[in-house]
Amino acid sequence: MKATFQVPSITCNHCVDKIEKFVGEIEGVSFIDVSVEKKSVVVEFDAPATQDLIKEALLDAGQEVV
């Protein structure tokens, strides 16, 4: 499964690193693409990962998800 999250609070590479760390810890996540320019995060994943778990990880990383 693939999901795109709009994350307007992404401003720098530190944000990218933190997002990759938090989302990458979720079992089932196979790909993460964070774009500072587009302020988006694209995640490819399989169970047990879910969109809700990914959104929670983004929030835990200090990001706003819309």
Rank of each mutant, 00 (worst) to 15 (best):
M1I: 08
K2S: 09
K2M: 09
A3Q: 06
A3V: 14
T4Q: 09
T4S: 07
F5Y: 07
F5W: 06
F5P: 00
F5G: 00
F5M: 00
F5V: 00
Q6R: 13
Q6W: 15
Q6C: 15
V7S: 01
P8Y: 10
S9R: 05
S9C: 12
S9N: 09
I10R: 00
I10W: 10
I10D: 03
T11Q: 09
T11P: 10
T11E: 08
C12P: 07
C12D: 13
C12K: 09
C12Y: 11
C12N: 13
N13W: 12
N13C: 15
N13V: 15
N13R: 15
H14I: 15
C15M: 12
C15I: 11
C15R: 06
C15S: 11
D17T: 14
D17E: 14
K18I: 12
K18N: 06
K18Q: 08
K18H: 06
K18C: 06
I19R: 00
I19P: 02
I19C: 02
I19L: 04
I19G: 01
E20L: 15
K21S: 07
K21C: 05
K21F: 11
K21V: 06
K21T: 07
F22G: 04
F22A: 12
F22L: 11
F22Y: 11
F22W: 09
G24N: 07
G24M: 12
G24K: 09
G24E: 04
E25H: 09
I26W: 02
I26T: 02
I26P: 02
I26R: 03
I26Y: 02
I26G: 01
E27G: 06
E27Q: 11
E27N: 08
E27I: 11
G28Q: 01
G28F: 03
G28I: 02
V29Y: 03
V29I: 06
V29M: 02
V29H: 01
V29K: 00
S30R: 13
S30Q: 10
S30F: 12
F31Q: 07
F31C: 09
F31A: 10
I32V: 11
I32M: 05
I32L: 06
D33T: 12
D33P: 03
D33L: 13
V34E: 02
V34P: 03
E37C: 07
K38Y: 12
K38A: 10
K38L: 11
K38R: 12
K38C: 11
K38T: 11
K39L: 07
K39Y: 06
K39N: 06
K39E: 05
S40P: 02
S40R: 14
V41R: 02
V42C: 07
V42Y: 15
V42I: 12
V43D: 01
V43T: 00
V43P: 00
V43H: 00
E44Q: 09
F45D: 00
F45A: 00
D46T: 14
D46G: 10
A47E: 09
A47N: 06
A47M: 09
P48F: 03
P48C: 03
P48T: 00
A49K: 03
A49Q: 03
A49G: 02
Q51E: 14
Q51M: 15
Q51S: 11
Q51T: 13
Q51P: 12
D52W: 12
D52F: 11
D52M: 12
I54C: 03
I54D: 01
I54G: 02
K55L: 14
K55G: 04
E56V: 10
E56T: 12
E56L: 14
E56Y: 10
E56W: 12
E56D: 10
A57Q: 03
A57P: 00
A57K: 07
L58D: 01
L58H: 01
L58R: 01
L58N: 00
L58W: 02
L59T: 07
L59I: 13
D60G: 09
D60R: 15
D60M: 14
D60K: 15
A61H: 04
G62I: 13
G62K: 05
Q63G: 05
Q63A: 08
Q63S: 05
E64N: 09
V65P: 07
V65A: 06
V66W: 07
V66Y: 10
